[in-house]
């Protein structure tokens, strides 16, 4: 069998069986476990925090004449 063909079979086999390589949040249980941990809410609030602060500053600035 040609080396190229063997390589193609290997590649297809890996693609069909390799669950780790699935970059899909809704179909990758290890990824879901790594995201939705006990610190999910704190991380979510940390990322939201700069937006809240900017919003409050903008509200204050809009009151200035």
């Amino acid at each position: 069998m040609a080396a190229g063909l063997r390589f193609c079979f290997l590649l297809v086999g890996l693609m069909l069986t390799g669950t780790v390589a699935m970059a899909c949040t809704t179909c990758n249980p290890p990824l879901q476990a790594a995201i939705f941990r006990e610190n999910f809410l704190s991380r979510f609030l940390f990322i939201l925090l700069p937006f809240v602060v900017v919003g409050l500053i903008c509200m204050r600035l809009s009151k200035l004449k």
Binding site: A23, T25, N28, L31, A34, I35, R43, F44, I47
Partner: peptide, 13 residues
């Protein structure tokens, strides 16, 4: 790859 994907998720948020 897993850490990269988790970071990608939070980048999306």
């Amino acid at each position: 790859l897993l850490n990269k994907e988790v970071n990608m998720f939070w980048d999306g948020i």
